[in-house]
Design a binder for these strands. Sequence first.
DNA 1: TTGTAGGCGTTATCAT
DNA 2: ATGATAACGCCTACAA
Lengths: 378, 378
Amino acid sequence: MLPISIIRRTSLLEIYTSMIKRPKLQDIAKQVGVTKMTVSRFFNDPNSVALKTRERISEVIEEMGFIPNRVPAIMSKSSSKCIGLVIPSFSNLVFAEVIDGVEETAVKYGYSVLLMHSGYDVHQEEQKIAELISYQVDGLILSEPEHTPLTMKRLLKAGIPIAEIMSLPKVPLGIACGIEHQQVATETTLALIESGRRHIAYFGARMDKRTYERQEGYLNAVKQAGLQSLVYDEIGRSNFTTGHLLLKRAMQHTPPDAIICTNDDVAMGVLMGCQELKLKVPDDLSIIGYNGLNVCEASTPKLCSIATPRRMMGQLAMEKIIAQLEAGMLQHDLTYLSVTLRAGGTATAAEQQKIKEHLDKLNLVMQQNLSEARLGVA
Amino acid sequence: MLPISIIRRTSLLEIYTSMIKRPKLQDIAKQVGVTKMTVSRFFNDPNSVALKTRERISEVIEEMGFIPNRVPAIMSKSSSKCIGLVIPSFSNLVFAEVIDGVEETAVKYGYSVLLMHSGYDVHQEEQKIAELISYQVDGLILSEPEHTPLTMKRLLKAGIPIAEIMSLPKVPLGIACGIEHQQVATETTLALIESGRRHIAYFGARMDKRTYERQEGYLNAVKQAGLQSLVYDEIGRSNFTTGHLLLKRAMQHTPPDAIICTNDDVAMGVLMGCQELKLKVPDDLSIIGYNGLNVCEASTPKLCSIATPRRMMGQLAMEKIIAQLEAGMLQHDLTYLSVTLRAGGTATAAEQQKIKEHLDKLNLVMQQNLSEARLGVA
DNA sequence: TTGTAGGCGTTATCAT
DNA sequence: ATGATAACGCCTACAA
């Protein structure tokens, strides 16, 4: 593939020949015949400017396509009205809704979001967090539960509200809004066991922290029931193809009668593999996804999945950060968010019912015990 | 779903009780017993600082978890070493690779990327671009070809390099790195016609500019061949389900023998629908996707798709921006990027071959004619 | 309603 | 090798 580059040599726009200095308040002010202070007021407190002046300023701004420079204000007020958000990856659709939730709430309160990604790597995360702090963000939202020691130190010294979302970290930095992935997996597995499944497999991929938590939860359940554990995983990227591959691997070993997948992509791959291998879903084999992405709708039967409240995690984290900013007070604040069943024909109606019951029970227990169990509140 | 919030009332970390002021160079300097200038040098020109001083500064920085404030530097140098990137959406995987390409190249040259999304809406785009400019980004990359008049004016006055990617806009703002989606669609359609298909349908979704360009290209080809045009589209989100739906709609009307899809998601949905409706692919019906996402691999047969060089567009746009920044000179620069065929069994071998030939021919023509045809180079 | 002075935290420049 | 000073562009506070 050969990109073809054409450089236009003449230009209709005479300004387009050398770099122009960005206009500042002063330039507008001179044009209008006032001081920059008046122009500043035009933006920050228009009513304190005479109507006529306002009109002239407005014209000049329009004509010059002027956009005020926010940098000096960030400096003098040492507040940027920006919140940093670090996600692991843009190619994982799980985070799209998180981003929406964060941004929606930020905008509601007059904040902006600076978005970065860490590539599932704590050292890249360290870099990105440092960069966000160097821009003087007023708060940070992190979506991976583990950080380098240097990052931990910096975050604790940063003096800004930090929220961790997705998982509930063992040692929260401040705010945390997450899911007990491990216990969810345990309950899901137990529900399948109670429904009569005896060869339940766990399909993992891209061994990030959350996948591992879910795997642990699955293992606890099968051990508790005295069943054989059937874990298959693939270190690489997680996608449909991974599910396909793991299914083939599992069928050669001990054909499972239920598969708990680390996410919906893997689960969809499994389902497509079943169609190829003529396995009857959910009779021969039930498939449970995780996250409840829209892709669940696409198949026939629809994918049964554990839906995670991703948008809400974003909203909640943002709201708690803003609350602390307005209160001028940092505080530990842990929120457990419950998951729900996204119905789908890849599990039997009875299984779906059982899973629902188990998840409800889990939520109840969490509600009663979380504070004492995890925190030892004074 | 009931989120449960637990507020921890005691804290192990005494600092964690009220907002701490962020440390500055001065604080480090005082601790070390030098002036802030020396600490500044530690970061920007370490060799000009005595080894012993360097060591002491290093210790204090480590101990305080200090991160330098980049805001004053942005202010005084009126350059942020940041490039803004605006994409339409985070839930469209097409942009994940674009982001990677942009960022990879930025980092290579010591720049950072500020990322925002416009929700496929020119007014949101206007907002986001204004915000990026207000942070004094040194350049901008936009991935939608149309902007509001105000945005156009602001961009022309901003005095920074602007790159438009994905499509080639009719009136480029500066740099453009894109694909002639319309002509690609025409050539693809012609190739299918030459391969003997007579009922070729176009499936669109989410009518953004690019989908529309492709549709035009398709229409040109079928009209030229005197065939009936079969356009089906859906305004809402574009995903597997859309493909499914459009297939059903098409089959009730005039069953097509080939479907050109606006993207791979729709195409995968069509393929899944074919399996359900027992349509033989590619014998009864060939399916052509667009973009060449990894999801093409997931199905059996694999999806045949027109692969777009998304990463390269990001890289190229970034490199051209940096080149202009280093030259201190803005210049129009138009690059046509060619697409390639991603092989897959949803089209016959003969069809795939024909499409390849047509795309090669297109690239040749573009190479010869682009500058005269589009720009009238002096 | 508008203007003036000073400061935010860094770095360029000049001085020691 | 290190320090002192001024400047970046805006906003707060005060003055007219």
